[in-house]
């Protein structure tokens, strides 16, 4: 006859651990979410409510919920304003940035890890060093080059739009952090796998496509998230390039700054609403890539 086995000591401690950690993490998570809840709640509070009842996370009563702040930048004169156009601008330029970054990172990291050539190590060291360089020096000269080429080219309206976005998308592919992330991952691939593929006669193209890329899936997802966030939230450079151009050309982040300047009345509500709105796409991507991606950070973060 089998009796119910008494739990071993380690099993009991494990169960205690689970309960303790659950309680602690629950409390911490609640506190952790307060700022976000505050942001969302304030975006629905009316201006008066914001000033009179600042202690409440959410609007004080059911009728105080208002969409006025959102309507401010979404609707004008009964029609949907330019937001869809701005969304399109942001989405396509972000998608293009992601593609550019991922492609660049894949092929360059592959070369840096799997191909031997002279100067490889100095390039890596150079990249590491460059991370510490203050990029702010290059902003104004970059704009000078941008303008000189633009004046030399004498483009049409559509051409100018593409030219401006070219300058937004292409440089974003050269982020060093993402490159090093990819390189780290490639280095963590056990060399035996690659060697055995090589001895089976596989050329670099095959190794790249069939072997390395599929393995890198979680790292790629990680880079997708970082690039998406970086490109979507990018403010300074797009603001400079798009300043003074037709407002149809702006990205969401740049356009939303136009609603938060100036008047001090209702500042809080509008800023919260614009922040929530610009966070929505990021949260969507985050939810989609979440699990895979976090596992990805885990494995690439370790080596080197």
């Amino acid at each position: 006859m089998t009796q119910k086995r008494r739990k071993t000591k380690s099993e009991r401690t494990r169960r205690k651990e689970k309960i303790v950690s659950f309680v602690c993490l629950l409390v911490i998570s609640v506190i952790w979410s307060i700022p976000l809840l505050y942001m969302v709640g304030s975006s629905f509070k009316s201006d008066l409510d914001l000033q009179l009842h600042p202690e409440k996370l959410f609007p004080s009563s059911w009728d105080e919920w208002t969409l006025k702040h959102y309507a401010g930048f979404l609707v004008r004169g009964g029609q949907v304003d330019n937001m869809p156009i701005w969304m399109l601008n942001s989405l396509w330029s972000t998608a293009a940035s992601i593609v550019v970054t991922v492609v660049f990172d894949l092929i360059t990291a592959y070369a840096l890890v799997f191909l031997k050539f002279k100067g490889r190590d100095s390039i890596i060291r150079f990249l590491f060093l460059w991370m510490a360089v203050p990029g702010v020096i290059g902003t104004a000269p970059g704009f000078v080059i941008f303008s000189q080429i633009r004046n030399a080219l004498d483009l049409s309206s559509a051409g100018t739009y593409l030219y401006i976005y070219f300058w937004l998308i292409i440089p974003s592919g050269t982020g060093i952090f993402n490159m090093l992330l990819m390189r780290n991952f490639f280095r963590s691939i056990p060399p035996d796998i690659v060697d055995s593929a090589k001895s089976d006669g596989a050329g670099h193209r095959v190794i790249f496509r069939r072997l390395v890329c599929p393995l890198a899936r979680s790292t790629i997802l990680l880079i997708v998230l970082f690039t998406f966030t970086g490109s979507w939230n990018n403010l300074a450079w797009p603001q400079l390039l798009l300043s003074g151009e037709s407002s149809y050309w702006q990205t969401v982040t740049v356009a939303l700054t136009g609603y938060t300047g100036g008047a001090s009345w209702g500042q809080v509500g509008v800023s919260m609403a614009t922040s929530v709105f610009s966070l929505i796409p990021i949260i969507i991507i985050f939810i989609i890539t979440q699990n895979k991606m976090i596992d990805g950070i885990a494995s690439t973060g370790l080596k080197g």
Binding site: I107, T108, A111, L112, G135, P141, I170, T174
Partner: peptide, 20 residues
């Protein structure tokens, strides 16, 4: 393989920095 990345890098990042 490494030239696309580095060409863009030099053109858009290194050159403005060197100017600065």
């Amino acid at each position: 393989l490494i030239s696309p990345y580095f060409i863009i890098f030099v053109l858009f990042t290194v050159i403005p920095f060197v100017m600065g």
